[in-house]
Design a protein around this nucleic acid. Structure first.
Lengths: 108, 108
DNA sequence: CCTGTATTTGGCAATATAGCCAAGTAGCCA
DNA sequence: TGGCTACTTGGCTATATTGCCAAATACAGG
């Protein structure tokens, strides 16, 4: 039988992973990595922030276990650890659509 | 053609929804509401925090469009707006398993 | 070895989040 | 009306996050 503490620990572990995704720049990174692996400089270009900022975003994703990094020569390449991450977006989108639909109903 | 601004706005909207889920107590709430609707006092009991704290968590979920509320008599009942929210957990779990697997490999 | 490029880390200021208590609002029932 | 229960909101403090600059580290090539 699981104790309350076990249950809390499980939800805390889940929250850590979800929190790691809860930032626009990190969602862009995830979307890019879903297409193919990228080095930090490419992601920096795409996001348009300071390299150090992007590097820190990547470390958040890495610490959460969402991405893997591999140093090749001068560069560090990142890729998704599991690809199902993208399934998130489908559901997020349907929340957004449901909200939009309900607001539409109010206006009419 | 979408501008960079449009793209950013989309990812910001997604991030708002995901961020609303990024807290252990709110994940517990989502899990409970997936079973059946609940009033604030029931959720407060389950979570074991101050009523005002739970109420604020619920307002975060409501503002994100994840839950709907309905006042019936003295109580306010909350329910999920879309049920696919639960799909998140499957993927989160597989991240956790992949991490565990890799750590296992290091130890061996 | 020296230089330039790629990346990470430390440090800091601005901002956001979390949780509690206290106070306010709303509906029920006597 | 008065009191009770359910819930939300305001206000506060503690803590976490974000993003920049500057400095440190790692590596490739001459």
């Amino acid at each position: 039988m699981k104790s309350d503490n076990d249950r809390l620990a499980l939800y805390e572990a889940r929250a850590r992973i979800i929190k790691a995704m809860a930032h626009p720049s990190r969602l862009i990174i995830i979307d890019e990595l879903a297409k193919e692996e990228r080095c930090v400089c490419e992601l920096t270009e795409i996001i348009g922030a300071d390299t150090s900022t992007v590097s820190k975003h990547l470390s958040v994703l890495r610490n959460a276990g969402i991405v893997l990094d591999e140093k090749r020569g001068n560069q560090v390449y990142y890729r998704l650890r599991v690809s199902c991450i993208l399934d998130f977006f489908g559901c997020v989108e349907s929340v957004m659509q449901a909200v939009a639909r309900d607001q539409m109903r109010l206006v009419r």
